[in-house]
Design a protein around this nucleic acid. Structure first.
Lengths: 259, 259
DNA sequence: CGGTCCAGCTGGCTTGAGCCAGTTTGGCCC
DNA sequence: GGGCCAAACTGGCTCAAGCCAGCTGGACCG
C-alpha cells in the first residue's frame, strides 16, 4: 500500500508533512499540541521556510492542524460531533422536553445553545426549492433564515422556505420568534402535521460567505442537508436548506426499512 | 454582507481568486473551461507567478478548479451526484431488479457500474464497531472490504463487519462473490432480515490512503457513513463503514417521522 | 502522406529574501 | 507590586528566479 517506498525520494514538503502527520496520528503531537515553528522546521530539514510552510499547508488542507497568527500551529482538537437525527422532528420529543433537539444536543456537550432567526422575508425561492415544493418557478414564498450557536460559536444555519398559502398570515409568515414547540408545532396547528421527511445530504467545501459566517477553519468541509417536510397526504409543505460545519456536526438516522 | 468593500484593499492573491471565482459563478468561465495560465495571470495582475499560484490554490482548496500538469487549470465540472438512499435496503427493490441500488444509480447516469470485493478476512473489529455490534472488545468478526466503481473510476468503498456467529460458515464468511440479491439476501436466508437501519453520517477531508485509493481530487471531502443493520428483534447483525467521494455521492433519505 | 521529434507551452516545487502583523515575555520604570 | 513597552518570537504574504516534468502542435523528415 506504500506509494513511496524510499523515504528520501519524496518531495521535501511531502516528507515534512508526512513526518508531522505520523507524529499527530501516533499521539506524539497530542490534540491541541503545538507544532515546531515554520522557521524551526525549515532549519531542521535544511529547506527554505516556504517549503516548511507548504508542508504545513498540506496538513491544514487535510484539516489536521490550525494555524494561529503570532502564536503557532496547533493540532486540531477533535470536537465531539453533534449528532442530529431524524428524531429531531418527533412530536413526542417536542412535547416532553419543550426543547428543540438542537438545544438538547448542545447541552449534552455542556455547552450553551442559542438560536437566532436572522430574517423573515417573502421572496422567490431558488429553482430547486420551488421544484421540491411543487410550485411554479415564480411563486413567492416565506423565507426564514435561522442560525444555530453553541457557546456563541456558529455551528450551522438553515434557510426555510414555506409556500405563502401554507404560512398564511400566521406567525410563520412574519414573526421571528415562534414560541413553544418551535416551528413544527406551528405547522401542525395550521393543519400540516409532519409525517414524512426527505433529507438530501451532500458534503462540499464552504464558499466564502459560509467561511466567514460560520467561522470555518481551513480544511473543514460543510454538510449540506436539503430537508423536505411532508404532511399526512404526503404533500410537501416546507423545505429547509441546512449548512453545517463538518467538524462539529454529524447526522444520525435510525429508521425502518420499508417495503 | 461584503467583507471587503474596497476591492483594492484585498490581498493580491485574494483579489485574483475572487475575480476568478466570480467568473466561474457567473458562467463566464464555464464548467470544464480553462483558466488563464499562472504566468498569464501573474502578468495581468502585475504580481509574481507565486501569487497567481496561491490564488489558484485557494480555488483548488474550495474545490472549484482542478489543475492538470502540463495542460492547464480547469473549472471542475459538477458531476451529478449519486443519490444513495435508505431504499437501497428495500427487499422489493432487490427482488424486482435483481440489481443492487448502486448499480441502478450508476446506470441511471449512463455509466458502467462495477463492484469488487477486495478481501474477506477474520479480524478483531475496531472498538467503535464492536460497540455497535454489542460484542466484547476482543471478539473476532468477518471483515469484508468492497469497492465501488463507475466507469472503472472508484467512487466509494465500504468495510463490512459481521459477527462470526451470524456469518457461520455461510458464503458471507469466506466467499468474495455472494450471488443474486447481494449481501442482504444472504443475511435474510440466515434468519437476519434487515428491518431497521441506523446510519451515522459525517464529512471530513480524506486521509492519504483515501486520496490514493479513491483518486480524490484536491479540495474534495469524503462522506463517511457508519451503517448498522438491525434484525426483526432490533438486534444489530452487521456494521459497514462507507467512505464516499463527496463530489460524486450524496445521500437521499425518505422516511416516516416516528412517534 | 504519415510519422517523429522537439520547441514552447503548461503546472509543480523549491529557494532565499523581505516586510508585515499578531502574541508573548521579560525587563524596566514608576 | 503594578503597569508599560519593546524585543523576540510567531505566522501571513509576497517577490523574483530557477529547474523539473507533462502536454501539444507544428515543423520537418522519410
Amino acid at each position: 500500500m506504500n506509494q513511496q517506498p524510499d523515504p528520501d525520494k519524496r518531495l521535501p514538503s511531502r516528507r515534512i508533512a508526512d513526518d508531522l502527520r505520523s507524529s499527530i496520528e501516533s499521539g506524539d503531537l497530542p490534540a491541541g499540541g503545538k507544532l515546531p515553528s515554520e522557521r524551526d522546521l525549515a532549519a531542521r530539514y535544511g529547506t527554505a521556510r516556504n517549503t516548511a510552510r507548504e508542508a504545513i499547508s498540506i496538513l491544514q488542507s487535510e484539516g489536521l492542524v490550525v494555524a494561529q497568527h503570532g502564536r503557532g500551529v496547533f493540532v486540531r482538537p477533535r470536537m465531539p460531533l453533534m449528532r442530529l437525527g431524524a428524531n429531531r422532528y418527533s412530536r413526542r420529543l417536542r412535547a416532553e422536553t419543550g426543547l428543540s433537539p438542537f438545544r438538547i444536543e448542545v447541552m449534552k456537550q455542556g455547552r450553551t445553545p442559542r438560536t437566532e432567526c436572522r430574517s423573515v422575508t417573502k421572496e422567490q425561492p431558488p429553482a430547486d426549492v420551488a421544484d421540491r415544493l411543487g410550485l411554479a418557478p415564480q411563486t413567492s414564498v416565506v423565507r426564514r433564515e435561522n442560525w444555530y450557536f453553541a457557546d456563541d460559536e456558529p455551528v450551522q444555519f438553515g434557510v426555510t422556505y414555506i409556500p405563502v398559502n401554507v404560512a398564511g398570515d400566521s406567525p410563520l409568515a412574519s414573526e421571528k420568534t415562534l414560541g413553544k414547540g418551535s416551528i413544527y408545532a406551528r405547522f401542525e396547528e395550521l393543519g400540516y402535521p409532519i409525517t414524512r421527511i426527505r433529507e438530501e445530504i451532500s458534503a462540499r467545501m464552504p464558499n466564502p460567505e459560509e467561511i466567514t459566517g460560520l467561522g470555518m477553519p481551513p480544511g473543514v468541509p460543510v454538510i449540506e442537508v436539503v430537508h423536505t417536510s411532508l404532511d399526512a397526504q404526503h404533500q410537501p409543505f416546507e423545505v429547509t436548506r441546512f449548512v453545517m460545519r463538518g467538524d462539529l456536526n454529524g447526522l444520525d438516522y435510525d429508521m425502518p426499512v420499508e417495503d
